[in-house]
Amino acid sequence: MNKEFKVLSRPYMVWLSVLVFIPILAMLVISFSNLNSSVSMSELVLSVSHFNLLWESSTLIAFRNSILFATITTFISFVLGYFIAYEIKLSKFKNKFILLTFVILPMWSNLILRTESLANIMSENNILKSIIGFNIFGNISGTWIAVLFGLVFTYMPFMILSVYTALEKIDFALEEAALDLGLRPIKKFWKVVFPLSFKGVVTGSIMVFLPTLAGFAIPKILSRGQIVFIGNIIEQKFIYTNYNHGALLAVVILIFILGSILLLTKFDKEGETLL
């Protein structure tokens, strides 16, 4: 590699170590020790005393909520997102980039703003109702349906994009070959198109599952605090400066993330579908 490029890569290497590796190390230390603001460094003791937190029912419920919602969101995103991606691929529309832009358009506005607006139009009296005269969503704000809707709405574009990328890579000659060998279009889809786009589904699933699992803003806003995710608990712990507990839960999430990435590399050895 050129020397100039090596130099240019340095700022990010510094950034990476100062703002990623060191904090992760700190997080690990904090979660496995008694370190906090009232304990000085000299009295630092390794301990697993915080681990009781993991078996508290509130934590378990939060984990259950996170995993349940993340799983359902991923599944819904897969079913709906796949067919949107497939439709975009099949469309005769010349500039498919514009169609994809529509898909990612919502992502260009701020997540909190978007979620707050969603919460607003899901509540009983809202701006949409005064304009069109009726409530499209009914009054679902605060329910699990609202949370699920918000999650799918927010994260499905990731699924659509990664499935679309995988679909676009399928050589059209393969589909012709399937028809040529006597497969009807439906069967061709299941035997050729779907297996070949499965990598995209895996990538997309991880890209939907992880932020849903770790997120806290959407459930907090849309459930009006009724449904607690693990992210909400972490947020609470940090707000109340219980860093040990916060860090421990964050480490658990990290393990989930690393596990998913391992899973991903197993399915996608060349990193083809990873956007």
Partner: peptide, 20 residues
């Protein structure tokens, strides 16, 4: 008649073998 209903098979230029 669609391709799948014809008593004809094709050997494609770039073979079009199923990679999976």
């Amino acid at each position: 008649l669609p391709p799948y209903a014809r008593p004809i098979h094709t050997v494609f230029q770039k073979y079009a073998l199923f990679p999976h």
